[in-house]
Amino acid sequence: MAKLMLTTALLSLVFVVIVAGHDESPSCVYSVMEQMLEKMFKLRTRMDEWERRFTELEDQVNKTKIRTPIVAFRALLTKSLKNVNKGTLIKFDDVDFNLGNVYNDGVFTTPYSGTYLLSTTLGNPTGHPGEFNLKKNGEKVEYNVAGHTNGFNVGGVTTVAKLNAGDKVWVEGSGSITGPYEISGYYTSFSGFLVNRI
């Protein structure tokens, strides 16, 4: 309604300008006005159609967008643990980053249902064998070992898991669990991130 009133007001103004500036007869002026009015309505119709199409396209784009929240963590072990009993929760004490505050006191709690990438590494020297069990709600997901061969070796495993919101994931260790080593750096870690929300 407001657009129609504005259009009428503009046409009235144009009419006044045309009448004031030309000596043509009123019928000629009205003919020009009719043509202008017809063109304006056609233009308005086209604009409405383009606006409708744009809105539909915008809705389609928004529906197809996959918005994955940022969830990621990486934690390292800065101390060595010896004679670790099987089933002991390993608390990685140096949290490199913790986006979403999802890793706390050794346990990763999933904030969303989705597919997650999870990874653990265990570095041990010769003669100090150890093992890791990656657990989800108490059930084994993956397994890795280190220290069973000559020299310093690192055992690692990376997997993709479908997890539900509120699931808890942690690492249990046994044997020897080495944190720092002679070569500068930490070789024992636990990390993960959300790939897709489902």
Rank of each mutant, 00 (worst) to 15 (best):
L57S: 06
H128L: 08
N85R: 14
E58G: 00
E38D: 13
G87P: 08
L77W: 05
T45R: 09
T120G: 00
A75Y: 03
R46C: 09
N62K: 12
L118A: 03
K42E: 14
M36A: 09
E58S: 07
I70P: 02
T121R: 11
L81K: 05
Y112R: 06
K91S: 03
N104V: 15
V71Q: 01
V32W: 07
N98H: 05
E49F: 08
K79H: 10
P125E: 08
K79A: 09
F108G: 00
V95A: 07
P111G: 08
G123R: 03
T88F: 06
N104Q: 15
D105W: 04
P111I: 11
N124S: 04
T45Y: 06
D93I: 11
L118G: 02
L57D: 03
F73A: 01
K65L: 15
I70C: 02
T121N: 08
N104W: 01
S31E: 12
T68M: 04
D48W: 04
N83S: 12
K65D: 01
N124K: 03
V61E: 02
E58C: 03
S113Q: 14
N83E: 15
E56I: 05
M47V: 14
K63G: 03
K79E: 15
W50I: 13
Q60R: 10
T45A: 14
T45H: 05
L76F: 06
L76D: 01
S80I: 04
Y30C: 15
T115V: 13
N83F: 09
Q60G: 00
R74G: 01
I90R: 04
K91Y: 02
D59A: 07
F108P: 02
W50A: 11
L99A: 11
P111A: 12
V29N: 09
Y103N: 12
T121V: 01
P129R: 05
R53M: 14
T68A: 05
N83A: 07
K82L: 12
L37W: 09
F41E: 06
N104T: 15
N83Q: 12
T126K: 12
R53I: 12
C28V: 14
S80F: 10
F97D: 05
M47C: 10
P69E: 13
F97R: 10
C28F: 11
E56Q: 12
R46H: 12
N98A: 06
H128K: 09
D94N: 13
D48S: 11
Y116V: 11
E24V: 09
F73I: 02
L81M: 14
I90K: 05
K65G: 00
E38T: 11
G106P: 04
Q60F: 03
V61L: 08
P26V: 14
V95K: 07
P69K: 06
M40V: 15
I90H: 03
L89Y: 04
C28A: 15
T55S: 09
T109G: 03
W50L: 15
K91Q: 13
K82W: 01
G114L: 10
E51N: 07
G106L: 07
Y112Q: 10
L99P: 00
R44L: 11
L89E: 08
N124R: 02
N104S: 14
L118C: 03
D105L: 10
C28L: 14
R44V: 02
K86D: 08
L76Q: 03
